[in-house]
Simulated assay, not measured.
Amino acid sequence: MSVPFSRRSALGLGATAATAATAALMLGSPAEAARPGPARIRATYEREKAKAGGTWHTHIAGVDATGVPAPIVEDDADHVTQGYSVQKLAVATAVMDKIDRGELTLGQKLDLPADIILGGSGIYFLHTVWGDEITIANFLTAMLLVSDNTAVRMCGRVVPAAEINEILAAKGFVHTRVEPVANPNRFFLGTTTPREMHDLLWRLATKTLLSPQSCTFLLGITRWINGYMDGVRRVMSSDERSRVATKYGADFNTLGASRHEAGIMFGPDGLPKLTYAMFAEGLGDLDNYGSTHPAVQAHAVIGRTMMDHLPAGAPAASTLARTGTAERIEPFRPVNGG
């Protein structure tokens, strides 16, 4: 299936406090508030999608009584779309797969030369001087926490584009692919579907996508509260934010602006409860990468609703027997130097 070609994305990152206007949007109608959790999530999704406009492709699933994720929203969930920076989850998966096989290590160092630096989102281009030696763990963290574009090129140096696609195919993904270019170590971020991204996230949370240690490493980055906060996690406490692993992607193409977000929510018991993969394209407000973009505002309202209506799922004992572990991270504590 053909998808529009576009340039690399530039992301607007940052945490935004809740406003009274946003809080009001969360309430919905009295009739909507009386609906059970999945129906409330569906109603909120449909309402916010209509407000934001564009064309949405979405898969949201919550854990049922047997501990298995059951669809809550399936809105053109098999549509093949440009994933933009959400695809960095797939790229990181390929790198960690080679680490699991002993072909790389997180502590392995590469130089950071000036000719590899990309602008847009991230931190490395802000250095203004380059030449550091950095670990694979360093650039994977930058790629997932602040969506660094240079880090994608660093990944390509250790896992070429063709190999990334081979790894993803071996894991059962049919449409989640990077787009190779003439240089075998570089690529555009390529395509995915909401359903395949749900599958990747669920397997990551249940420690079946990679080794348990590698899954924990990636989840620790994507759940950390210094990451992306403008969308799903915007109107949440620090504790709630730490229970959401998320990845955002933004760009534009011939259809208009694209604003995507995909992630997984954990309960207070540390068990995965809900996945979301929302891909919106053909949007307006092309150059707005901030929290006021209509689709990003929609993500915030949907995110708050999902957190408020997380499914209870299976009893903890049976879920632990199936997934192997609960996923907890240390609560955020400020440090005043010293």
Rank of each mutant, 00 (worst) to 15 (best):
L320I: 08
E330R: 15
V91T: 07
N288Y: 07
T216G: 11
T325I: 12
A280S: 07
I116P: 10
G28V: 01
F252D: 13
T275P: 01
A92Q: 01
V181S: 04
T141N: 10
A50D: 07
G62I: 05
R322E: 06
V159D: 02
H293F: 05
D115E: 12
D269V: 09
A142W: 09
I136C: 08
I116V: 13
A70D: 07
S6D: 13
G122S: 02
I164Y: 05
A70F: 06
G131H: 07
T216N: 11
K109N: 11
G220A: 12
A151H: 07
A18V: 08
G131T: 08
V174Q: 11
H198E: 09
N149F: 04
L104W: 02
T81E: 12
R7S: 14
W202I: 02
I264K: 02
R7L: 15
I123S: 14
T135I: 02
L25W: 11
R333G: 10
R333I: 10
T22M: 14
C155M: 03
A24T: 08
V68E: 13
V181R: 08
D308R: 11
L189S: 06
D100P: 05
W224V: 15
A20Y: 09
G83V: 06
A15M: 13
T22H: 13
A94H: 02
E163A: 07
G119Y: 09
A162F: 10
L11Q: 12
L286G: 08
L168M: 04
D100M: 00
A151P: 02
G220V: 11
H57G: 00
H260Q: 04
Y45K: 05
G303I: 08
V301R: 00
S214W: 06
T206S: 10
P272N: 02
A169L: 04
L189Y: 09
K98W: 10
E240Y: 10
G14S: 06
S147P: 02
T135G: 12
A34H: 07
M197A: 00
L271W: 01
S318Y: 12
G227T: 04
F332R: 04
N149A: 09
N183P: 08
A92L: 07
L286W: 14
S121R: 08
G107M: 05
T254R: 15
A298S: 05
M306E: 06
D100T: 05
A280M: 07
Y276S: 00
T193Y: 01
R177P: 01
T81V: 15
V86C: 01
Y289K: 13
C155Y: 07
A92H: 03
Q213A: 15
N288W: 04
P180H: 05
P71W: 00
D64C: 04
Q108T: 06
T22R: 14
G284F: 05
A245S: 09
P334T: 05
A262R: 03
M307R: 12
T191V: 05
T176F: 03
